[in-house]
């Protein structure tokens, strides 16, 4: 199944707004909600994430079919990276670790904003660097 890249940009913009609100308010509930959105996107696929459904319901019917579609793997992997950062941030906020919370949220926001504003998928870029750095040539687990 292909996904609509415009939906990814939309989801990234919403994600950026939510993470920005988390930084301002320090709300762990809001961050938990965003972590859940990331997890659904990573596990079920981005088209089933709440933001993906919102896009499909509200915007896609007005925009018409996309000029180009893309493979679902990369954005899904990026959602998993986002989930990891949100969970780290959540641990930081709840356990009261001083720097961890804001730093992890800021990192996730950095990536989401780059995707929303420039169409750059940072999680996807990091993937090959990780594979390069790990020893061995075995096939990817994903």
């Amino acid at each position: 199944m292909q996904v609509d890249p415009r939906g990814q940009r939309f989801a990234a913009a919403l994600t950026s707004a939510v993470l920005a609100a988390v930084l301002i308010t320090g709300s762990a509930w809001l961050l938990a909600a965003q972590a859940a959105v990331f997890l659904v996107g990573a596990v079920a696929g981005v088209r089933y994430s709440p933001y993906g459904l919102l896009y499909a319901r509200l915007l896609r019917p007005r925009l018409g079919p996309p000029p180009e579609s893309e493979a679902p793997g990369p954005p899904r992997f990026a959602q998993a990276v986002g989930a990891a950062f949100s969970v780290a941030g959540l641990v930081g906020l709840l356990a009261g670790v001083p720097v961890l919370g804001p730093a992890a949220v800021a990192a996730a926001l950095f990536a989401a904003f780059l995707n929303a504003a420039f169409g750059l998928c940072l999680g996807c870029e990091v993937y090959l660097l990780l594979r390069r750095a790990l020893p061995g040539d075995r096939a990817a687990a994903a």
Binding site: A20, L23, I24, T25, G26, S27, A28, W29, G92, L93, L94, G96, V97, P98, G101, P102, V105, A106, L109, F110, F113
Partner: peptide, 18 residues
């Protein structure tokens, strides 16, 4: 659950820098 780890002002500064 409303973490005191980030207060409004510091959060806004982190947001702007990010």
């Amino acid at each position: 659950l409303d973490g005191a780890a980030i207060s409004g002002g510091a959060g806004a500064a982190v947001l702007a820098a990010t």
